[in-house]
Amino acid sequence: MLGRDKITVHFRDRSTNAEFSRTVYGTVVTEQLDGKVVEPMPGRPVFANFYRVIVPRSVQTALAVASVTSIDFAGRETAYSRFENGLTPIYDGRGRVRHYEGVVRSS
């Protein structure tokens, strides 16, 4: 567990293709402490770590008009980590969005 981190989420507007960013404070949880070697291109292995990112529901307003392109966290500015799966809403007992979670691959 890395703790409460400053997370910058980069969005792309669906209608205008304009890019913008939002900074939120969420939690980054390590999924795998020892990295995993992945091969995005044949013969070029890359060492990647996987993290579970928990962001507050305040990004909900940006998600209404835009899609997430990449994410920066924990001092990894301009790393542009990619989501393995999109941000998934987690609901509370009343059916409201409590927070969003997603798995991020950072190399």
Rank of each mutant, 00 (worst) to 15 (best):
V65P: 00
Y91Q: 02
S106G: 12
G43E: 05
Y51R: 03
Y91H: 12
L87W: 09
H99E: 12
T8Y: 03
D92W: 05
V24Q: 05
Y25Q: 09
D13W: 04
V65S: 08
L33I: 14
K36P: 01
R52P: 05
L33W: 12
A66W: 00
G93W: 05
F83S: 08
T88G: 00
A66M: 07
T16W: 10
A64T: 10
D92L: 11
G43Y: 00
R105K: 06
P89Q: 11
D5Q: 15
Q60V: 05
I90M: 03
I71V: 11
L63Q: 06
M41P: 01
Y25P: 01
Q60A: 14
K36H: 13
D34L: 07
A48S: 14
V38F: 12
Y25G: 00
T30F: 02
V68C: 01
V68M: 01
D92A: 08
V38M: 06
F20V: 07
N49S: 07
P56F: 00
G35Y: 06
Y100N: 07
R94F: 13
Y91T: 07
Y51A: 04
V29M: 13
P40S: 07
T27Y: 13
R98E: 14
N17D: 12
R14T: 14
V103C: 01
T78H: 06
G95R: 02
A62G: 02
V103G: 02
I54H: 09
A79S: 11
G95Y: 04
T8C: 07
D72N: 15
G26C: 09
N49I: 03
T23C: 02
V59Q: 00
A66Q: 08
F47K: 07
G102Y: 11
F73E: 04
Y51I: 07
A64R: 15
G43L: 01
H99Y: 15
V37R: 05
P89S: 05
Y100D: 10
P56S: 12
I54D: 04
A48M: 11
G26V: 11
Q60W: 06
D13P: 01
D34K: 12
S106Y: 04
G3Y: 08
V55Q: 00
F20M: 08
V37I: 07
E19Y: 10
F20K: 09
R76Y: 11
Y51M: 08
Y51F: 15
M41W: 05
E77L: 10
A66P: 06
V53L: 15
V38R: 14
V46T: 13
I54N: 08
D92C: 13
S107M: 13
N49G: 10
V53P: 02
G3R: 10
E77I: 14
G26N: 08
V65W: 00
S106H: 09
Y91S: 03
V24E: 07
V29K: 13
T8N: 06
G43P: 00
Q32L: 15
R12D: 03
H10Y: 13
R98D: 15
D72A: 05
P45E: 06
T78R: 06
P89Y: 03
D13L: 08
R22I: 14
T78I: 05
R76P: 03
F11Q: 08
R76E: 13
L33C: 04
Y80M: 03
T61E: 11
S15H: 04
R94G: 11
R14P: 00
R22A: 15
Y51S: 06
I71G: 00
